[in-house]
Design a protein around this nucleic acid. Sequence first.
DNA 1: TCGCCAATATACAGAATCGTATCTAGAAGT
DNA 2: ACTTCTAGATACGATTCTGTATATTGGCGA
Lengths: 214, 214
Amino acid sequence: MMDGVPVEKLTPERRRQLTRRTLVEAAAQVFAQKGFYGASLEEIGEVAGFSRGAIYSNFGSKEELLFGVLDHYMDVQLDAVLNAMEATGRADLVADAVAATAAWESANRFTSNWPGLALELRLAALRNPEVRKRLADFERKSGDKVARVIEEEWDRRGVRPRVSARDFADLSRAALEGLTQLAAIDEEDSPRYRRLVGELFVLLASAVSGPEDT
Amino acid sequence: MMDGVPVEKLTPERRRQLTRRTLVEAAAQVFAQKGFYGASLEEIGEVAGFSRGAIYSNFGSKEELLFGVLDHYMDVQLDAVLNAMEATGRADLVADAVAATAAWESANRFTSNWPGLALELRLAALRNPEVRKRLADFERKSGDKVARVIEEEWDRRGVRPRVSARDFADLSRAALEGLTQLAAIDEEDSPRYRRLVGELFVLLASAVSGPEDT
DNA sequence: TCGCCAATATACAGAATCGTATCTAGAAGT
DNA sequence: ACTTCTAGATACGATTCTGTATATTGGCGA
């Protein structure tokens, strides 16, 4: 019988990629919860619905799996950042900041175990030179991208900034991540920290144009 | 013979505290390098110059040792913060910010494996409710302290802030920690991130008093 | 339809770790 | 000087985890 639904042909290659993805997502989750050392391949396989065999078939070692998770993380993170940037561009600086914050929020950057994964990967970077290199490259590249967008916006509006767009971007990112972490730890005051994200952007945006500008 | 030097009598109690401290410091170092799970008690004992027996004699378990490290961390962190605050108080807001930054820098917050320890403890907090509670309490309490100092300063100078002192304190701390982490990961751009710390304070300080004030 | 091959599962060996149980040495007090 | 008591060292058992080697299963080509 012919398939009434456009069933993805599910070629072997496709199937393999699919299990890879499943494994990576499971690994991301378990790494975030238990940490790289604390997580057992057994549990990761179980969460993914596979056995350890699948992991060793698709990745050579636990470390390679970590790299898979890192790549995945960087993809998702970059998407979130670009989406947040796209949310801006119509209103004034402050409103833009608020919109970007909302986009950031909706990208569930505060929920689930995203903060845990981010922390875990930073730690992994601190300990593993290869991870460190890749993560640093990524941060630089995405920082550049964000800075370019900011610059365009400033140009378009004739803003005379007191700091470079790159500095502004990095400062925002650092503060954003610090707040995210604090919110994750202090669950009770988490709403306050989320509010502070908006506050931060308003402060920064108003500061960047200086006392002489509105 | 009478002691020419005021030799600390080294009572048993004192001796015990001393080994405890030695063990905690060794644990802090190894935890920072390898993580809680990755660190073996064997190695910690070795670094401290003791055997695992000493650990189990002074702490009941690996987890209790972690609590010891956490307490130590909070003590040191609070000291550093208060010192940084004390560095302020004479000049204007911007100069104060710079001075505080310098004090922070000199407290080696960027060097050694302090960033690693901070990250590791945050992760531990994310995973262990008891750690989370203690750390959250500490952050709140130290945040209050800092906020109070800031408020006094603002009062004394007649600053009319646009945000609460508490918000300002938390924003600063979040950004500071974010920058510290980025600096630790991107060793190559580390100087730039350190410069951004000063930049940040200047921006925040100028923003907080608003466009109507200098 | 049959046999081959790749993807995944299972079985296994070796290493490492935690916590406990036991031992030892040296100081405090009589 | 002798006993006691405690901090710390050593020995041990049990568990767990990684990585490899082997088995199995399900699809694809001949």
